[in-house]
């Protein structure tokens, strides 16, 4: 898609980016600066809602900007700029998350760690609901809460919980189930 030659016609955002990218390939630093300043918030806003930690958006945005810089020669001026950019954004986002999870960065915090929610809960805006669940759990009888936490949060089997608490396996299952029903009723 070539940018329109008539400069009096206002360009759409996509056309403007295409024009700037084409000028940047020719070495126009001003156009390149404008392009990077225009796409940086776009990239950030696009990915921030898809990440567990909003700080990652900053890191990924920087990686995308570097990638755009390194691969500017692969952009073809006869094509729109945005699909080319989005392919890079998607690639860098997946690459970042792959590295994060393969380094088991998501396994290195405990539930007691206050930064856990900030860094690892998919949507931090739900942190308030998490607190509500915690509050509801605290309101349960100690034994019932212990069984529920062991089986549903810490991932023990009913048999293991039964051995740990001295209850029968069926009593453990019934207790966990009743707690779950109670919580569901509470939170709709």
């Amino acid at each position: 898609m070539k940018p329109p030659s008539n400069t009096n016609t206002p360009l759409s955002v996509g056309e403007q980016w295409t024009a700037w990218a084409t000028a940047a390939q020719a070495g126009d630093k001003a156009a390149y600066n404008k392009l990077l300043r225009a796409i940086a918030p776009f990239i950030r806003n696009f990915i921030v809602g898809k990440l567990a930690n909003p700080d990652w958006a900053e890191d990924i945005t920087q990686e995308v900007l570097i990638s755009v810089h390194k691969s500017l020669n692969t952009y073809s001026p006869d094509r729109p700029f945005r699909p080319w950019l989005m392919a890079i954004v998607s690639f860098r986002k997946i690459d970042f998350l792959r590295k994060h999870y393969s380094a088991r960065g998501d396994k290195q915090s405990s539930l007691e760690d206050p930064s856990f929610i900030q860094n690892h809960v998919t949507n931090p805006t739900h942190a308030g609901e998490y607190k509500d669940v915690e509050k509801a759990l605290k309101a349960l009888p100690a034994k019932q809460r212990e069984v529920f936490e062991l089986i549903k949060i810490q991932g023990y089997t009913a048999k293991e919980v039964a051995e740990k608490t001295g209850m029968s396996v069926s009593a453990v299952k019934v207790s966990a189930h009743r707690t779950m029903v109670k919580l569901k009723d509470k939170f709709g």
Binding site: A24, Q25, A26, G27, K29, Y32, N33, L36, R37, A40, R44, E58, T61, Q62, L65, I66, H69, L72, N73, T74, Y75, S76, P77
Partner: peptide, 20 residues
């Protein structure tokens, strides 16, 4: 600011490139 710095740095480094 970090992104701003990077943009300025990348702009300074820009050289004309031949489209692939």
């Amino acid at each position: 600011p970090s992104v701003d710095d990077m943009i300025n740095s990348l702009t300074d480094e820009l050289e004309p490139v031949k489209p692939m």
